[in-house]
Nucleic acid binder design. Structure first.
Lengths: 356, 356
DNA sequence: CTGAAAGCGCTTACAG
DNA sequence: CTGAAAGCGCTTACAG
C-alpha cells in the first residue's frame, strides 16, 4: 500500500489510554466496556470508563481481540462466480443483510473453479481466523467440498453435499409450480420442455462436469405435477451446450421444424425462454395467443420481452440470508434447507389456442 | 458460531513448534521463513526450518502478524450495491483478479446508502487494520466520501470526488462512440436521445440526489460528435423516473405519438433501449430497417432482443482491476483515470430508411 | 469491588 | 552467525 502509516496519520486510541483517563486499571476498563458483570464494577465507575472512551474516540482493535479470543467476527463466501454474470450479487446481498446484525464482516473470494487457487485462498482465510465458510455455487448442484473447509463451520449455499448443512432452492417445487401454472390455464397435451440434455448425455448425472440439480429436479417436479393431472409432457427439446438465448432459439426452431405444434413451452431458464420467443416470432407464432411460455430464474430478462415472461424465480437473496443465519447459529440440520421458488407472473401464459 | 473450537478441531501449528523441530530459535525460524537476510542464516539452517514447517503443515497466523506489523493484507470494497442487481459482480471480480496476485483479501461491504450504516462499517473495517478502501458506486457519479475513509489509502471506483484517486468509465468517449456509429451508418438529421431528465429537472445537476455523470457526459459526447459532423440531435425524449424498460417504452411511445419520425434512437442505457424496441414494435416499426437503436451498458439485455442491440459497454471488470491496482501501488494520480467504453456490435443499426 | 500479570502468535531491534 | 526479550492491543483467570 502507498501510505506507510497504518492508521492514516491519526494514531489510534488504545484501551490503556482510556483506562488511564478514567483512572482505572485496563482490566476494569475492558470489563466495563464489554458490559461484563463478573467482577461487579460500580455503575459509576463503568460510566466514567464509557465517557472516557467516548471522549477519546476509542474503538477496540479487532485484530488484537481476535488474537486473544480466536473469534474474528468474520465469515468468508467462497464461490465460483467467475464466468457467470448474474445473481451473485443478490446472494451476497442477502448474506450481508444477516451478517450485519451480528457485526460480522464478509470476505468475498472467487476460486475461478481452480482447486489450487481454492486451497490457497482457504488456507489464507483460515490463517485469518475466519469464524466460518459459506461455500457457494452459482449453479444449483452437488459439490465435493475441499478438505480445508472442514477446519471451520461450514454452510453450503446453492449447492449440496452429503451430511453438510446446505440451503438450496426448492427446484422440484418450482417444476410443480410451472406445470400447475400451465394446467390452470387449460394446457394438457401439447406441453413441451425446452433445455434437456442432448441425447448423448441423457441419463448421465453430469453436465460440464457438474450435477445440475436444477435440471433433474425441475423436470421431476414438472412430470410429477402433470402426472397428477393425468397427463404428461408431449416431449422435450434438448439444447446443444448451454442454457443461453441462442441455444433456446435453436432448440425451439428445431422443434417447430420437426412439425411439433406445442401449446406451451416450459423452458429450463429465462434465457432459453427468450430464445424461444425469438424462434416463435420468426415462425409468426404469438406469445401467448398461439404458444404459452414459462421460464425459470425470475431474472431481468423477463422484463425484456413482450409480453413479459412468466417465470419461477430463484430466491437468491433469501438463500444468502438463510445460509448466513444458519452459519451464525450453527444450524445442525442434516437435510438441505429448501427455499421455495415463487411464481413471478408475466403475460406469457394464456388458454391454449383451439387446435385445428 | 456453532462449533466452539476456533480451529475446527485440529490445533494449528505455531512458529515455536517449527523452531523447536528445526532446533533453532523462534527469531531464526521467522527470518528463515520470511527469507530475510539481515542476519545471515546459513542456507542449510534455513532449509532445515523450511522442511520443519513443511512437515508440520505450518501456516503463519495472519492475525498475529497483523497485530505486530499493522498490515493486514486486506482491502475493503464499500458500495451502494443494494437496489441494483446488475454489474456489481463484474467489478468485484475484476478487483479480486488483481488482489489475488498480491495475496490480498477483499471485504465486501454494502452501505445500503445509509450514512450511519456506512460509518459503522467503516469503523469496523478500520478496527480490523484494513490496508485500504475501494469506495464504489453502482452508478457513475460524484460522491462525497465519508471522513472515515481518509484513515486509510482510498481509491474511488466508478465515482469521483475532487483530489481523490478515482477510476471511472470514459462516458464522454462513449457518447462519441455511439454518435459515430450512427453517423457512419448514414444517420444525420433525425437522431433522438432517449433518457434525458424530465423537463422540471433539466439543468439540475442532481437526480435522485446524485450527480449522474453518465447522463451529462454521454450527452456531451454525443452532441460534440454530432456537431463535429455538422449536425445535431433532433431532440431528446425525457423519462419519468428511472432508466428501466417501462420508462423507455413510455418515452418512445410519447415520442412517436408526438408525430416525430426518428431515424435513430440513442438510449441512455440498455433497459431504455429494450423499452424502445417494445414501443417501436407496437407502432409496427422495424429495428433496424425503420429505426436504428443503440444503448449503453453492454448488459445481458442486448442479447434478449431481436435483432441484438448494439451497445457501448461499461467496462466494469476492468474498472475493478484498475482500481485495485491503483490501491495496491498507491497511485497518486490526481485526475480520475478514465477507462474506455467499447462498442459491442449488435444488429440494431442500419442505413436510415428513405424519408417520404 | 480493584490491579498486576499472563498470554494469544507473531516480528524485530538488540546483545552476544 | 544465534538467542533472549520486548511489544503489537487486547481479554481474563487470579490474587488481593
Amino acid at each position: 500500500m502507498a501510505s506507510s502509516d497504518g492508521q492514516g496519520g491519526s494514531r489510534r486510541v488504545t484501551l490503556t489510554e482510556v483506562a488511564r483517563r478514567a483512572g482505572v486499571s485496563r482490566s476494569a476498563a475492558s470489563f466495563a466496556l464489554n458490559g461484563r458483570t463478573d467482577l461487579r464494577i460500580s455503575e459509576e465507575t463503568s460510566a466514567r470508563v464509557r465517557r472516557a472512551a467516548e471522549e477519546l474516540g476509542y474503538s477496540p482493535n479487532t485484530t488484537a481481540r481476535t488474537l486473544r479470543t480466536g473469534k474474528s467476527g468474520t465469515v468468508a463466501l467462497i464461490s465460483d462466480f467467475i464466468g457467470t454474470t448474474s445473481f451473485a450479487n443478490a446472494m451476497v446481498r442477502g448474506a450481508l443483510q444477516t451478517l450485519r446484525d451480528a457485526d460480522t464482516l464478509l470476505y468475498t473470494v472467487d476460486t475461478q473453479g481452480d482447486p489450487d487457487v481454492e486451497a490457497k485462498l482457504l488456507q489464507n482465510l483460515l490463517d485469518r481466523d475466519v469464524d466460518g465458510f459459506l461455500y457457494a455455487s452459482m449453479f444449483t448442484r452437488q459439490v465435493d467440498v475441499p478438505p480445508l473447509t472442514r477446519n471451520a463451520p461450514l454452510v453450503l449455499l446453492n449447492c449440496a453435499s452429503p451430511d453438510i448443512p446446505a440451503v438450496i432452492p426448492d427446484e422440484r417445487g418450482a417444476g410443480e409450480t410451472a406445470a400447475a401454472a400451465l394446467l390452470d390455464a387449460g394446457h394438457r397435451d401439447a406441453i413441451w420442455f425446452v433445455g434437456s440434455f442432448p441425447p448423448g448425455f441423457t441419463g448421465a448425472a453430469v453436465w460440464n462436469g457438474w450435477s445440475p440439480l436444477a435440471l433433474t429436479e425441475r423436470l421431476d417436479g414438472i412430470q410429477a405435477r402433470l402426472a397428477a393431472a393425468g397427463t404428461a409432457l408431449a416431449g422435450t427439446a434438448p439444447i446443444e451446450t448451454d442454457w443461453d438465448v441462442e441455444n433456446g432459439r435453436a432448440a425451439v426452431t428445431r422443434l417447430l421444424g420437426s412439425g411439433a405444434r406445442p401449446s406451451a413451452l416450459i423452458c429450463a431458464n429465462d434465457a432459453l425462454a427468450v430464445g424461444a420467443y425469438h424462434a416463435l416470432s420468426v415462425a409468426a407464432l404469438q406469445v401467448p395467443e398461439d404458444v404459452s411460455v414459462i421460464g425459470f430464474d425470475g431474472s431481468a430478462l423477463t422484463q425484456a420481452v413482450l409480453p413479459r415472461l412468466t417465470s419461477v424465480a430463484l430466491p437468491y437473496e433469501e438463500l444468502g440470508r438463510i445460509a448466513a443465519g444458519m452459519l451464525l447459529q450453527g444450524d445442525p440440520a442434516s437435510r438441505p434447507h429448501r427455499v421455495p421458488m415463487p411464481l413471478v407472473p408475466g403475460a406469457s401464459i394464456a388458454s391454449p389456442a383451439p387446435r385445428d
